[in-house]
């Protein structure tokens, strides 16, 4: 049984003016335990919509989403979410305070949660920054806090919505390799959203390419069998995987461009 199963999932956004918008329709995807799935698609195709439904922030208007065989109803500590921007961080708490937030909510005693939070602070490479507040930290550091905050809570899976999209190229590359290192160390299941083919190939064990919206669904699923050494933009196998994914994406990009211009 897969860890997560999306069966014929659809989402219709009701609008006040009466023009309902079908963002996704008949979306099917299985996510196995320990997989790193990248959901790849053009801007506005419904990636965030899918993630929000898996997170339990939004209800599917059609179909079912199951986790370990149980239909989800609402958010839960089994699914940790890393958001694209930094507005989910708590500005009145220090880095360590943010990281231990989930443990505090669940009643873990202060001494215990400090130790655990410190461990994850270290894991994301922020040792020494624990007393800084989010405003005092760079964009990359803030995303590290978000990742540590989620990991410290020990969820079954991570849901990440374009977490590195706002970072500069160098920071993004560094964050990608850190995330891979953490993923290998913790063997969490990851659903990672991106619009960047490179990023998907660097990170994923499986890439799901989405159709352009509206009524978007999965277009195809590609298994990425590259080794760690081959996940390098200059490697031949990387380039051939890129071509493969790009061919699938190309038409969708064209459709998306036509719609928005």
């Amino acid at each position: 049984m897969p860890l997560v199963r999306l069966s014929n999932v659809g989402k219709v956004y009701r609008s006040l003016t009466g023009d309902d918008y079908t963002a996704v329709q008949d979306f099917n995807l299985d996510i196995e335990q320990g997989e790193f799935i990248c959901l790849l698609g053009t801007s506005g195709c419904g990636k965030t919509t899918i993630l929000n439904m898996v997170a339990g922030f939004e209800h599917a208007t059609n179909g079912v989403i199951e986790i370990a065989g149980r239909a989800i109803d609402g958010p839960g500590a089994d699914r940790g979410v890393v958001f694209q921007g930094d507005d989910s961080l708590y500005g009145w708490l220090s880095a360590i305070g943010n990281i231990e937030f989930g443990l505090k909510m669940r009643g873990v005693p202060k001494a215990v949660r400090r130790v655990q939070a410190k461990r994850y602070l270290e894991m994301v490479g922020l040792t020494g920054q624990e007393h800084k507040h989010p405003t005092e930290l760079s964009g990359g550091m803030k995303q590290r806090i978000q990742i540590a905050r989620v990991l410290a809570n020990e969820p079954q899976m991570l849901l990440m919505d374009e977490p590195f999209a706002a970072l500069d190229a160098h920071t993004r590359a560094a964050m990608q390799s850190e995330l891979l290192r953490i993923w290998r160390a913790t063997s969490k299941t990851v659903l990672f959203i991106t619009h960047d083919i490179d990023e998907a190939i660097i990170l994923a064990t499986k890439i799901g390419v989405m159709h352009a919206g509206p009524a978007s669904k999965l277009k195809s699923v590609i298994d990425v069998t590259l080794t760690a050494a081959e996940r390098d933009r200059t490697h031949d196998r990387f380039v051939s995987t890129y071509r493969e994914v790009h061919t699938i994406m190309r038409d969708e990009v064209a459709i998306a461009m036509q719609r928005t211009h």
Binding site: G56, G76, A77, G80, L89, F101, M105, V150, N153, P155
Partner: peptide, 12 residues
């Protein structure tokens, strides 16, 4: 997102 994050972290 502050509220959503808290819900996903298990806050009541």
């Amino acid at each position: 997102n502050k509220i959503r994050a808290a819900r996903s972290l298990g806050a009541s």
